[in-house]
Design a protein around this nucleic acid. Sequence first.
DNA 1: TCGATATTCAACCAAGTGGTTGACGTTTCC
DNA 2: GGAAACGTCAACCACTTGGTTGAATATCGA
Lengths: 106, 106
Amino acid sequence: MTAQLDQVFSALADPTRRAILAMLLEDDMAVTDVAEPFKVSLAAISKHLGVLSAAKLISQEKRGRVKWCKLDPDALRSASVWMQAFGQMEPVDLDAFEAFLSQELD
Amino acid sequence: MTAQLDQVFSALADPTRRAILAMLLEDDMAVTDVAEPFKVSLAAISKHLGVLSAAKLISQEKRGRVKWCKLDPDALRSASVWMQAFGQMEPVDLDAFEAFLSQELD
DNA sequence: TCGATATTCAACCAAGTGGTTGACGTTTCC
DNA sequence: GGAAACGTCAACCACTTGGTTGAATATCGA
């Protein structure tokens, strides 16, 4: 359990990974499309997605040659919790949550 | 903003630091007393406290030769939230928590 | 003043992280 | 079949992290 928390928090500690989560809030995406807005390599993004997946913040499903990434619903709940913690004290509001996350996209 | 989040999440990613926060939820403590239950060295705990302090999750005040560590009131709220959310620690008594908060804000 | 207590600092080490590049296995489509 | 697209793997590199030990600093108490 402690190890799971370690994974979740260290996954959230990286701005690229938080940006990825923000993108996935919009819609499910293929790995290549996730990587597109970033300046780092596809392999780097693939690793980030592996970290998010290990932390169960996202799930990945391969259909054909495309691997789709989607937010894990439970993770969304956890994410809303930490959003509440830092800043907005209003009860969890997904629109506000999305806006908060979007601020992080440079 | 992003850098601050980086600091907070990576601070929370370490189980020793989360345990320290849980201890400080009970009461303010001196560095030596914080270190007592852990098997790592005092210097290691001192570093952990530095990380928590940099993330503004705690504040430290030196009185005499003793340096007191206390949860940052804002951080206290967040700490209670994630502790409950992830169910790692026993649930926080929110009434006692509020009382503690107002006492702290004299 | 002297010794004990409280805490940090400095140097070091092993392991982990985020990044790269290039090769590799699949799947799609003409 | 063969080229292109999708994604991962393996090896490597620079940097960070959590830990150690030992010396240093500062304050207290007798």
